[in-house]
């Protein structure tokens, strides 16, 4: 029996995994977890983005995994390095919650903006979005199994689901 490892992805980070291992990221709030996977090769990548748009950045060297508009492409490139054809890729996403109700003056809406930005990138790269669990006001921990291609989502107050 092969041993199963859980590959952990931190905040503003990404990684890839093959069967029988699974990949997970914890405590997504307004951040979005993006899974790109190839069903036939049973390989998946997971990205944990923090912000929608890298043009907001004022850094010289940018960590692409921090932003939706650079992260999805960077993960796709990482998968390509592993011999995965981009046209085989499908996506599942989770996160983008509104953790705090900051009143009517809250223009940040960072969670929904992260989700919008990820979707725009997926569309630009012609990666079909198969399912999503986004929005609301719950934190999420997610784990993807490239064998079943299911994304398990755990919350504190709203139970566990699978998409």
């Amino acid at each position: 029996m092969e041993e199963k490892n859980v590959v952990k992805v931190g905040i503003a980070d990404m990684n890839i995994v093959k069967v029988p291992d699974t990949i997970r990221t914890t405590g997504l709030g307004s951040c979005v977890g993006v899974v790109l996977y190839d069903e036939t090769k049973k390989t998946a990548g997971l990205l944990h983005i923090l912000l929608p748009d890298s043009s907001a950045g004022r850094q010289q060297i940018v960590n692409p995994a921090k932003y939706a508009d650079t992260g999805v492409f960077a993960l796709l490139e990482m998968l390509k390095q592993e011999g995965i054809s981009p046209w085989r890729l499908k996506a599942k996403i989770a996160g983008g919650a509104q953790m705090f109700q900051l009143g009517p003056g809250d223009t940040m809406r960072i969670g929904p903006r992260n989700v919008e930005s990820v979707k725009k990138e997926l569309e630009r790269l012609s990666i079909p979005l198969i399912s999503e669990d986004t929005g609301g006001n719950n934190g999420r921990t997610i784990e993807f199994d490239p064998e079943s291609c299911k994304l398990k989502i755990r919350t504190v107050n709203a139970g566990t689901t699978e998409i």
């Binding site: 405590g27 307004s30 950045g57």
Partner: peptide, 18 residues
């Protein structure tokens, strides 16, 4: 908010993370 620490704290990192 009563939730996972990661989901709460990451919200305060937005401004700094740029």
């Amino acid at each position: 908010s009563v939730d996972m620490a990661g989901s709460i704290i990451s919200f305060g990192l937005m401004e700094i993370s740029t």
